[in-house]
């Protein structure tokens, strides 16, 4: 009987790894064909390849950053993304490209005209369609190894605890302060880190919040908070969510593979208008 490992080895080819050494890689076409033939998920085939030290070629340019173990960890991970708007769209796309194996995406909205200026996944032909449906389709088209669990609904704290169970990291890509606070409480109950991002005008902010941290609850209190911040005056242009979501993605990847130093108790402010980047120590 021919094993999966044997088939992977037979289909892999030598490939320069970029540092002058050589590795064995398998093309997307061969991964897809093998998954069909053996009735396996693409993710399973990619994981089996990595275990055999055969790199799915699609991750070649990530290898120097995340390493073999890191790529296995990413493909084995589950990340929750709450909000599929300006931030969430970019976050989902980047996590899919990095090969984060399972995404739980939650949003109760449909795409509207006012999303077209900045939301990565929103095309004119998507207006009126649920954001999570469009996002799931994008992920399938970009990286079919990634499994998406989508939830088209407005959520409260209890819902988020239920829907995000099993996520190792949760991303706050929401657009309203009370729901962000509810999400922090949910992440606290699930005992998982939360990567917060928010935008207004040229300003983006990012912070990673551990269950024990004050985070947004410490900053904004747990009493009555306004729905929105200064973004109602400063607007939400195209580049600010890209800039901010990019940092959120870096935080998620670092947390999953255990590299670097997260922005814990540090609010990173990026002010693109004045070229100013600051870190505020948050209690």
């Amino acid at each position: 009987m021919i094993t999966l490992a044997g088939r992977l080895r037979a289909l892999s080819v030598p490939q320069p790894d970029g540092s002058g050494a050589e590795l064995r890689a398998i093309s997307l076409a061969n991964v897809a064909a093998l998954a069909r033939e053996l009735r396996l998920r693409r993710r399973q085939v990619e994981l089996a390849a990595l275990q055999e030290h055969i790199l799915p070629e699609r991750y070649l340019r990530s290898l120097g950053t995340v390493g073999w173990e890191g790529q296995i960890k990413l493909l084995s991970s589950t990340v929750g993304v709450v909000g599929v708007g300006g931030l969430g769209g970019w976050v989902i796309m980047a996590l899919a490209r990095m090969g984060v194996g399972r995404l739980v995406i939650i949003d109760g909205d449909v795409f509207a005209d006012s999303n077209l200026n900045r939301q990565a996944l929103c095309r004119e032909s998507d207006l009126g369609r649920p954001k999570v449906d469009v996002a799931a389709r994008w992920v399938r088209q970009v990286n079919a190894a990634v499994q998406v669990r989508k939830h088209y609904r407005l959520v409260n704290e209890e819902d988020m605890v239920a829907l995000l169970a099993g996520s190792e990291v949760v991303v706050d890509a929401l657009d309203c302060l009370p729901t962000r606070l509810a999400l922090q409480r949910a992440a606290r109950r699930l005992q998982v880190p939360l990567v917060h991002g928010a935008i207004a005008g040229y300003v983006g902010q990012v912070m990673t919040i551990w269950p024990a941290d004050g985070g947004l609850l410490g900053l904004y209190g747990s009493g009555d908070v306004p729905e929105h911040g200064v973004e109602t005056q400063w607007g939400n242009p195209a580049a600010t969510p890209m800039m901010t979501a990019a940092w959120q993605v870096q935080e998620v990847i670092k947390l999953l593979i255990g590299r670097g130093e997260p922005l814990r108790c540090k609010m990173l402010f990026m002010d693109a208008e004045w070229g100013q980047v600051d870190i505020l120590q948050v209690p």
Binding site: G229, V230, E231, P241
Partner: peptide
Amino acid sequence: QHQVVELDHPLADGDALALFPPVAGG
């Protein structure tokens, strides 16, 4: 002094303040 306060909070000599706008868009 690293603690959130209301805007009517009276300041004391030597206090260190950090001020920023609430940013919540997505």
